[in-house]
Design a protein around this nucleic acid. Structure first.
Lengths: 248, 248
DNA sequence: ATTATTTATTGATATAGGTCATTCATGGAT
DNA sequence: ATCCATGAATGACCTATATCAATAAATAAT
């Protein structure tokens, strides 16, 4: 297979899938839309483009013109400290929208970077706003998605009150749930992010993340082989994740 | 002044202020709306009601029918652990909307409780949704407010990566900024929440919050007298808040 | 294939912040 | 005015997790 053919294949696979044929339909923005409405939404989606591993979707400070729906792959969102350290605020999976935090200021406040070869649908925000005032179902779904993001972020705020074990269990649990909703196994998880990235997101040291993974494995809760996780005792992960920090 | 008159007064002060006469106009939902549109929004706001100190606006599990705009006073949002400990996820000041996290599920996932005698405007969500598909400016503003909430929550996620001093500085800084936007002093702050509540929000022990406040006072950064804070060195608070956790 | 580089694990030690205990202040109730 | 209950501050001590250091395993580069 030549390089050129390969490029064509990518174009085909990434450009030709309309919302109505997308398997993420019921997780993504088009949920609830039918026929005409769906096609109108489809028509404003400027292009479905591939994003290479480690490529930026946008950077903090960029003007926000579009939001993005992840079609395949995964992304991390982060800000940088003065000394250049990444502060990861979240990970995005297929069907999730990226860039919603920038609507209010019109400028991206965080940077979004692909963790692996990924594809996104670019949705020009101005057109989306216009369209959603004409299509009630679209407005509805946009509000619901944003509300879900708020709810998710608030549960992430609770992380700062939890122990290292609880944090990691919450993280794995969240991934398992999200994978399951996407039709993947919730037991076997392939992590696309490094230990450093997990640690940054959870507010822990890398070494602590490693150690807690090892402990989980020793306790038979999950098997851990670098980025391949297999959850053996889902109930226990659930318990650990749900277990709230001790009170006095 | 008799009790009855007092009640009437409350009714007058809380019921008679239309959005167009509200001093929170430019911070709240009506921003950008004019004349007719503004009055239409005003007409769906079911009632402006007083909420006594320690009274609930809603509780986790309640069906979400309305969202609320704080007119005066302040609120805390929290969930409970198994053992009944409050996990505070945020505080709400005048002009801010409460309940946005419940749109996605239609059920409140957290409880909202007044920290002091407060007033809210109750906005039936169904009607708001209808109205915002007719009034583009309203849709716009609703999206902007939700986006701002997402951005704010994401900055709160960063707390779990910070030291106790940084967390408290961030907290004070956020309050100062929000008060300033509301036309209050950003230097002299009256905290309406207890040390326990601050500690819960920041994921620290009460004692740590006390100690850090004392340290801030010793260092001449602020004067602290129970709930009365006076910021002496705003730059230093800013530095501490902005100072990102050390990297290796 | 071989070497270099990144990523992950594990151990030893240090420390920030938690926990327990006591005292002091404050504001509401009697 | 006095008492009581609650909230806040401070000290002594301990523990969870960070930091430093070394090694191993897995990719990437030559």
């Amino acid at each position: 297979m030549s390089g050129l053919e390969s490029v064509n294949q990518i174009d085909i696979s990434s450009l030709k899938v309309a919302c109505k044929d997308c398997n993420l339909y019921q997780l993504c923005l088009p949920l609830g839309l039918e026929n005409d409405d769906l096609e109108r939404l489809d028509s404003i989606i400027k292009r479905r483009r591939p994003v290479k591993r480690h490529a930026y979707l946008y950077q903090a400070g960029d003007a926000m013109r579009s939001i993005y729906a992840v079609r395949s792959g995964s992304f991390k969102s982060f800000t940088l400290t003065d000394d250049g350290t990444e502060q990861i605020t979240g990970f995005s999976l297929p069907g999730e929208l990226i860039g919603l935090d920038a609507i209010s200021t019109g400028q991206h406040i965080s940077t979004s970077k692909a963790l692996e070869m990924s594809h996104v649908c670019e949705i020009p925000f101005e057109k989306l706003e216009e369209l959603s005032s004409v299509i009630p179902g679209l407005q509805r779904q946009l509000l619901r998605i944003m509300s879900k993001e708020i709810a998710h972020d608030q549960s992430a705020i609770l992380l700062s009150k939890k122990s290292a074990e609880e944090r990691l269990a919450c993280f794995i649990m969240s991934l398992a749930n999200r994978f399951e909703a996407r039709g993947f196994s919730s037991r076997e998880i392939h992590l696309t992010m490094s230990r450093v990235e997990i640690a940054s997101y959870l507010g822990l040291a890398v070494e602590t993340v490693s150690r807690v993974f090892s402990r989980f494995q020793q306790d038979g809760i999950m098997s851990v082989n670098r980025r391949a996780i297999e959850i053996k005792d889902m109930d226990e992960v659930h318990n650990l994740a749900g277990a709230k920090p001790s009170s006095r």
